[in-house]
Design a protein around this nucleic acid. Sequence first.
DNA 1: TATTGTTATACTCTATAACTATA
DNA 2: TATAGTTATAGAGTATAACAATA
Lengths: 169, 169
Amino acid sequence: MRPSDDRAVLEPVANEADLGLVDGLAQLTFAVHGVLARIAAANGLSVVQARLLGILRDRQPTINELAGFLQLDKSSVTGLVDRAEGRGLVRRARSTVDGRSVHVSITDSGRCLLDQATSAFGSEVADLVADLTAAQRDHLSVTSTIIVAADGRRRGTDIFAIEPSQTEP
Amino acid sequence: MRPSDDRAVLEPVANEADLGLVDGLAQLTFAVHGVLARIAAANGLSVVQARLLGILRDRQPTINELAGFLQLDKSSVTGLVDRAEGRGLVRRARSTVDGRSVHVSITDSGRCLLDQATSAFGSEVADLVADLTAAQRDHLSVTSTIIVAADGRRRGTDIFAIEPSQTEP
DNA sequence: TATTGTTATACTCTATAACTATA
DNA sequence: TATAGTTATAGAGTATAACAATA
């Protein structure tokens, strides 16, 4: 086994004792992302499409707001929404207060797909954390929340500061 | 605030108390993935290219083995390695024991880029977990390791069962 | 003038299927 | 025959730059 300071970010290592925070978070991210990708694919979606539907679950944001949520260029969001709309998963509606803006909302068909994917993801996560104790799971839930909140605050796209009703005037 | 059982996977919510394990892990994954994407982009890489370099840090796996690590089709890995090789970040070498196989290794240039990205990621993670207590960070490190190990075991691509020397005969 | 969204373009990433070369 | 890797093809995802419509 290599000493712990010989560990490398972004790569699997041969030390089961502890990956360390940096490698652990990177590997954890790849693992969960892989789960998301498999479930999305099983429902004919990409991870980003699934994430789009999740955001639209109880919001009707504009293209610009979606770009903020997803951290993508607005032109990328246009294409994303184009493809989802072409499959009947979302729809566009011109804003009544600003003729330049478009509000995107989820269709019944899209919501059905989202519910299926959501349910499957819940099951997979349960498997993923099966080796953790209940206390460890609670800890993970709390720390994840803290990190996500801090990250949103730092990026200026604080998800906790945005009520669904704010994006649907 | 909505009750906790009204939370939705894959989407931001307006409840700072606790996202729950499922949403928390999903959001955490998006946050860390976003950090990885930004750092990779700052170094002219995609997340997958950065991950490829990370895997090659102390291994010379075959295309097939890379496909297993990255959970991609081998044809996708061919293209991935093509582009990285075209940029001088990795190189191919025919296996001496099996004329069909190719071993991929990182170049000095690729390692330099990897080191920069690795360092930047470490800093960003430090910022990301700045709001956690030292104990919470330790907990997160341990639980991440457990989850990653279990996931690898379950997928049959247990990273802890693979010593670097095994992929370089 | 500034902002919102789209279009045009180009590249990366990915999978499927068919292929070549080796075992 | 089976396996390792590549190629051809097609589509999704992404960003930059230029554009139209609206504010």
